[in-house]
């Protein structure tokens, strides 16, 4: 029903490590360190990269659950723009489900591009919600900058997930 064969199902232990442990680790890094960078373009949502890997490797219910859980956590600690994180992660999962037939979803390039797209969507949605307080050029520049920066560092975030869930490592 979800398009995931039995061979693709991740063992529970590793699944939980990624679902809770690694996601929490990345979230803490993002909240404690990345959010304190002095440059706006560097303050990116690292969880988008985790979401891309989760979407590609977890069964859809688990992916959706992940999106709601960590999206909600992100929203709670942000305290405003409720639903932005959830919606972004769900959109990423949806886009992955949409493109998985046409693209090589296992490649790193695909993951990086999807991360960039997710960050762009998130930035544009945030700008649209926050309203006319920002200049369009500034919003676009910041969003593009964040997308590029996210794409640059996403392999570092996605790498450990691929390593933990790799066939060789089982």
């Amino acid at each position: 029903m979800w398009g995931v064969s039995e061979s693709q199902v991740t063992p529970w232990g590793r699944f939980l490590v990624i679902f809770f442990g690694y996601s929490l680790f990345v979230y803490i890094i993002g909240t404690v360190m990345v959010s304190r960078f002095p440059w706006m373009f560097a303050r990116v949502d690292l969880m988008v990269a985790v979401c891309v890997e989760v979407a590609g490797r977890f069964p859809p219910p688990a992916s959706i659950l992940w999106c709601f859980l960590w999206g909600y956590v992100g929203d709670v600690f942000q305290g405003r723009l409720w639903g932005l994180h959830c919606a972004t992660y769900l959109t990423v999962v949806y886009l992955h489900r949409l493109w998985r037939g046409q693209m090589n979803v296992q490649s790193l390039g695909y993951g990086v591009l999807l991360v960039g797209l997710g960050v762009v969507l998130q930035g544009l949605a945030a700008a649209a919600i926050v309203g006319p307080g920002f200049e369009t050029t500034a919003v676009i520049m910041t969003t593009v900058g964040q997308a590029v920066f996210s794409m640059m560092i996403s392999p570092l975030v996605m790498g450990p997930i691929r390593w933990v869930l790799s066939e060789k490592n089982r």
């Binding site: 709601f68 723009l81 639903g83």
Partner: peptide, 17 residues
């Protein structure tokens, strides 16, 4: 059930706005 749960969760989150 999944769709209802997702919709409910999303509505709850959006309602917080």
């Amino acid at each position: 059930a999944v769709i209802v749960a997702m919709g409910g969760a999303m509505l709850y989150i959006l309602s917080l706005n």
